[in-house]
């Protein structure tokens, strides 16, 4: 299989937040929110990233868009190095990549109408004149399944699902190539979740979109992703095609995660063996030495406590970081 150039390449991305304390705001330590993450996304595909809350998946998404300035590492979009772009260049690049947020109640300015919110990206990038923008805004409303008469309403007059559609329309307005969706459905009712997921799939097909889909819900990720990456404590532990990941997880953490997903069939559900992890996730300000997962891993070996396992290909693009897999 020949690989075309990926749309987005992330290499050794790190984002550390300093912890300041004391009278003079001295740096007391740092939270390693994202600690050396590498992956790439092909054009048109959906890469899902799963992990527990606090594992750094949202920060990864924000660091890619430089909404949080990465501490180190490279992010390349269509071969262009994003981290090297200066203010105005980066601002123009934002047309190419957009974001959909988790909380549809916080991500819309309560003092602007739906129409203003959706037309804003067009205005910011100077696309069309006022009349043209209004037309496009109405079209966008239709595209995401709302009506043009919704344009004059304020966010508080919409339901959660409708608000999320407005957020999606805003992201779509500048016709981006990449959309980073940060848990776009986790704040919604289950019945609405599938509607929004279906909408996102329709839009992907129609506008040739590439998604980085961040979630903590394994079944949501399974539904929408082509490939899935699993994060634990700021690190990517496994990354492969969706089906391979769900059928043959290599990393013990992935195995434990997947064993927690209920099967919608009573017979195998009874036989299902659950791997219960003991202990809590260690603090990202003091991650364990060696493999971050060694404190909770059921198969922990001596080497895991000292040496950080390399994140590498174990055949057919099945990446994992675990010493168990080394010969």
């Amino acid at each position: 299989m020949t690989q075309p150039q990926p749309l987005l390449e992330v290499e050794h991305l790190k984002k550390f937040f300093p912890i300041r304390g004391g009278v003079f705001g001295k740096k007391m330590g740092e939270v390693k929110a994202v600690d050396d993450v590498t992956f790439s996304i092909r054009k048109g595909e959906t890469l899902g990233i799963v992990g527990e809350s606090g594992c750094g998946k949202s920060t990864t998404g924000r660091a890619i868009l430089r909404l949080e300035e990465p501490t180190s590492g490279k992010v390349r979009f269509e071969g262009r190095e994003l981290t090297a772009l200066k203010g105005e260049e980066m601002r123009k690049m934002r047309r190419e990549m957009q974001m959909v947020f988790q909380d549809p109640f916080a991500s819309l300015n309560p003092r602007k109408t739906a129409g203003e919110i959706i037309a804003e990206p067009l205005k910011v990038h100077g696309i069309g004149d006022a009349r043209k923008r209004k037309e496009q805004m109405k079209e966008l409303l239709q595209v995401v399944g709302l009506d043009s008469f919704h344009a004059g309403r304020y966010p508080h007059q919409f339901s959660g699902g409708q608000r999320q559609r407005i957020g999606i329309a805003r992201a779509l307005a500048v016709r981006p190539k990449l959309i980073v969706a940060d848990e776009p459905v986790s704040a919604l009712d289950v019945s609405i979740q599938s509607q929004v997921l279906n909408l996102m799939e329709d839009l992907q097909e129609r506008f040739d979109l590439t998604y980085l889909f961040i979630a903590h819900d394994l079944s949501v990720v399974r539904h929408i992703s082509d490939r899935v990456g699993v994060m634990y404590l700021g690190r990517m532990v496994e990354l492969t095609d969706r089906d391979r990941l769900y059928e043959n997880p290599l990393h013990p953490y992935t195995q434990a995660l997947l064993s927690a997903v209920p099967v919608p069939d009573p017979e195998p559900e009874v036989r299902r063996e659950r791997i219960i992890l003991s202990g809590d996730v260690p603090s990202p300000s003091h991650p364990p030495k060696g493999c971050a997962f060694h404190t909770r891993c059921p198969h922990v070996m001596d080497i895991c406590r000292d040496v950080r396992p390399e994140f590498k290909d174990h055949g057919d693009g099945h990446f994992a970081a675990c010493h168990l897999l080394d010969p």
Partner: peptide, 17 residues
Amino acid sequence: QEDYVLAARAIGMKDRR
């Protein structure tokens, strides 16, 4: 800290705006 401000930055809006 609100998401809509982050969203405005993601859109590419300038600080002053």
